[in-house]
Write a protein that binds this DNA or RNA. Structure first.
Lengths: 119, 119
DNA sequence: TATACATATAAACGTATATTTATATAATAT
DNA sequence: ATATTATATAAATATACGTTTATATGTATA
């Protein structure tokens, strides 16, 4: 159940335990990887399947070094796996839940920002 | 269905449309708000319900200006709503899905980083 | 009105990060 | 071997962001 999982999350990351702080850094570490528009576009593109760098570069219209940079970041956070095949290097989403979370985030963002009055 | 929602997301944010890029900025905008450990701790704390700034400051053990700063950021991204009552100002999560996404992110992060070989 | 409390804001600082430009590595083909 | 393609890395720059310190605003109370 959702409530149970949240309680486990609270237990794992107690907001306060005798004034001693317990970190949240794993979640932040992964969340940071999602906090860039180009990386989100790369991830979204990879939901269609494994792709080479050049393919991503073409599809997104970003420079090759920029794509490499962001792919390296996604690899560092373990969100993608890498595989070489000849001269090509293929990147693939490491977990199905990534796409699901992206979808949820989009739904939330859309609704939140739908009837905003100001920026 | 999950697949349908993903297709809608792809349609809304096509990776490439005649070399014309379509942004992903709403999602990134919200994701950025989740990309900080202290903000995540604030959000987690607020899953327990509406709280005043001073209560958050006590529970998290961060300075009051820092809490205000992050709460302002959460407010800017519409993740929290604000309400004044006397001298106190109460912050509350704006949407139930925020907690759900946090839980999902934690599950993902935990599994991804569980059997990493290196940092 | 004066004082205390709750919160916000401003300034200043250091660090992290996104992007560009240029170059290096690695694999393939001629 | 040389050239070409695919990708990575390095350097440089600008900007964004988190944090601290100090101060202001706003509300209640004596």
């Amino acid at each position: 159940m959702k409530t149970l999982r949240m309680e486990r999350l609270l237990k794992k990351n107690p907001v306060q335990v005798n004034r001693v702080e317990i970190g949240f850094c794993d979640v932040a570490f992964v969340a940071k990887a999602l906090a860039d528009e180009n990386r989100l576009r790369i991830i979204l593109s990879l939901t269609q399947g494994k792709k080479s760098v050049s393919r991503i570069v073409e599809e997104l219209g970003i420079s090759q070094p920029l794509a490499s940079h962001h792919l390296k970041e996604l690899k560092r956070t373990l969100l993608v796996t890498v595989e070489r095949s000849g001269p090509f290097i293929y990147y693939e989403l490491a977990d199905h839940r990534i796409a699901a979370i992206l979808t949820d985030l989009d739904g939330l963002a859309t609704d939140l920002l739908a009837n905003r009055t100001t920026f």
